[in-house]
Simulated assay, not measured.
Amino acid sequence: MNLQTLFEDFNPSKFVVHCCLLTFTIFFALRLDNYITWSYWIVFTPIWIWKSLVILGATVGSYVWWRYPHFRLEGEAYVHYKSMLISLALHLILLMFELLVCDKLESSRHLWILVFIPLIFISIVSIAVCIWAVKHERSFELELFCAVNVLQFIFLALRLDGFIGWSWEVVFVPLWIVMCLSLVGVLYTIIFAVILLRTPDMNAQQKRSSFQSAVGYTFLVIPVLIFQVLLANKLDEDIRMSFIAVVSPLFVSFTTLILMSFSAKGANKWWFGMRKDFCLFILSVCPLLQEYGNIAYQPERRREGVEMEQATDKFDVYIKKADLMKPVLPITSIDMPD
């Protein structure tokens, strides 16, 4: 078991976010189907955990930033810290939207258009954040999702409030467009992977990476498209399915995202003030785990290695003995008389 290979590019932020979203999706679907009768404040517990970790991580990171000024000189510390603050601001606004959604589902005291105002604001701000992220080579998945769906959020709010009477298939038109572009991207990754697999000059690592990307994006986009079709038909009452069956394709997408988080890279090193990769931080905090990671091996390979070392030692001793048997002065040829 090689822990270093398994967690080499592990991104803990994405892992936590996708696990929380998967759990929330299950709880929310069960609540809509009345399999559980929990309050929506309890159903949103995975979301509250996600946001609590964001706030706690940014707080600890800011404390370390101001408490130890010399840490600011480490590489791109300023870029990482600014990225953390921007992400914190967006998550706080998103938290406001989630609180309004939960309150709306519990009490129905205000319009949906008021609930979606924070989300629409995030979508507008995310355009500038995406430009900043591209300039500084930072990841921007959440920001990109909000930026391209601003029109979709407006349609959802108007449809839920009854200001428009369109069918849900028409309401989801902006999302259909996004999904079509995503399908084009998936098709491109598949074609690119096939070309690399048939190219003899490419090494095995590049072929494996392109194949894994194609498989990952396929299992990510196709289930989301299936979910969107089922949800539109469910809301239009064209089919009779439980909500847990409607959202079941999302389980495949979230599982794919969780697996992809182990090779996502790009984690911000200032969350919780770690200043290093997550696995290196864990190994430095837990010496026992570091020792286990260092001595992890397979018995067969270890025996082969010991035998090879013993054979090498014997060979070195033989070479040294042979060197000692060499004469000090060179021997010249002596011609014998006839």
Rank of each mutant, 00 (worst) to 15 (best):
M1H: 08
L3C: 01
L3H: 03
E8H: 13
N11V: 13
N11Y: 00
K14F: 13
F15N: 07
C19P: 01
F24G: 13
I26L: 13
F27D: 09
F28C: 10
A29M: 06
L30H: 08
L30N: 13
R31Y: 07
D33K: 14
D33R: 11
D33V: 14
S39N: 14
I42Q: 04
P46G: 12
I49Y: 02
W50P: 04
K51T: 12
L53D: 04
I55T: 15
G57I: 10
S62W: 05
Y63Q: 11
W66T: 14
H70C: 09
H80W: 04
I86D: 02
H91E: 09
H91Y: 10
M96Y: 01
S107A: 09
W112M: 07
W112K: 01
L114A: 08
I117L: 05
I117S: 01
P118T: 05
L119H: 02
F121W: 07
I122G: 02
V125W: 13
I127L: 05
I131P: 03
V134Y: 02
H136N: 07
E141F: 14
L144W: 01
L151Q: 09
L151D: 03
A157V: 11
L160C: 07
I164W: 00
V170N: 05
V171D: 01
V173E: 08
V178A: 15
V184D: 00
G185F: 13
T189C: 00
R198I: 09
P200N: 02
M202K: 15
A204N: 07
S209C: 00
Q212F: 08
Q212G: 14
A214L: 07
A214D: 06
G216D: 09
T218V: 02
F219P: 04
I226H: 06
D236Q: 03
E237R: 09
E237A: 12
S248L: 13
L250R: 03
M260T: 11
M260K: 04
F262G: 06
G266D: 12
K269C: 05
K269I: 02
W270A: 03
W271K: 04
M274L: 02
D277H: 05
C279D: 11
F281H: 03
I282M: 01
C286T: 14
Q290Y: 10
N294P: 01
A296P: 01
A296N: 05
P299E: 12
R302C: 12
D313Y: 04
K314F: 05
F315M: 08
D316E: 10
D316V: 14
K321G: 14
K326P: 15
I331K: 06
I331G: 11
